[in-house]
Design a protein around this nucleic acid. Structure first.
Lengths: 138, 138
DNA sequence: GTGAGTGCAAAATGTTTGCACACAT
DNA sequence: ATGTGTGCAAACATTTTGCACTCAC
């Protein structure tokens, strides 16, 4: 899907970086799979792409703000940033490590309201809820 | 200071874990040095404590909810969690760097509600709003 | 006394780097 | 054409594990 690469192409162009096959592959994989561990990303691209290239491009995407890293215990997950996908927050399972996205409009409203009450002009915010996912509540 | 270990002792007892010298050392180090990288923690305890024990106890503290890992730029930091220090959130000014505490009951309630809707059992959460404080909104 | 916790050293994992070749512009 | 990006393999860093010994209860 070329249409899906518009953002990638644009971001790379802005930063005077080449649009390469590797970068498209990493981007596509991130786009089609939610928050991913580096391990999963490496596995998903194994055989197609060298580990070093995955690391290099993840780092590069991070440095130009296309990608964010969510830490979770000793592990972390990767996902495209808000500028590329809809703004959302996270439910992090402290048992199995899975991370789910949640969109919570009311939460946004409350944050806006609280900020206003405190004469604060919000620019960005981050909400992370840690606990047990459905499968880990045995 | 034995008084500082009351919480540690209690938490360990609740979880039927031993109060050991290593655990006291890790706890004390976290208590006296705010958010820390794992590397800093290891360095700080080097010579006193084996790396493996630090990892094991950090993991253990985390598993019983005494310790939280925070995203700090692209690294992670460790710090004692809300169960040991007063729960609150932050308004971080990206201009002057000032940080205000906020307590937001509605936010707490809403986070609980969202979790329920998602069949998620929350244990802790973290909210950070970044923006401009009153004095910096010129 | 006994099981949980520790240090040690080695293994397993995860990440980075140097270099020669290949590809995007 | 030429400088950027890549694969490969080795170096380096981080985290985990097995085992025998020690300590907390």
């Amino acid at each position: 899907m070329d249409s899906g690469h518009i953002n990638l192409t644009k971001q790379l162009k802005i930063n005077r970086l080449s649009l390469t096959k590797s970068r498209i592959q990493v981007f596509d994989y991130l786009l089609s799979h939610g928050p991913l561990t580096m391990h999963d990303l490496l596995m998903g691209l194994e055989g197609t792409l060298d580990r070093a290239s995955v690391y290099r491009n993840v780092k590069l995407f991070e440095s130009i703000g296309m990608l964010q890293r969510l830490t979770n215990g000793f592990k972390y997950s990767l996902e495209l940033s808000d500028s590329l996908i809809a703004h959302h927050h996270h439910l992090v399972c402290i048992s199995c490590g899975s991370i789910s996205d949640i969109s919570a409009n009311k939460l946004e409203q409350y944050i806006a309201a609280i900020s206003k009450t405190n004469n604060f002009r919000p620019k960005s915010h981050q909400v992370e809820v840690r606990g047990y996912c459905q499968g880990c509540q045995i």
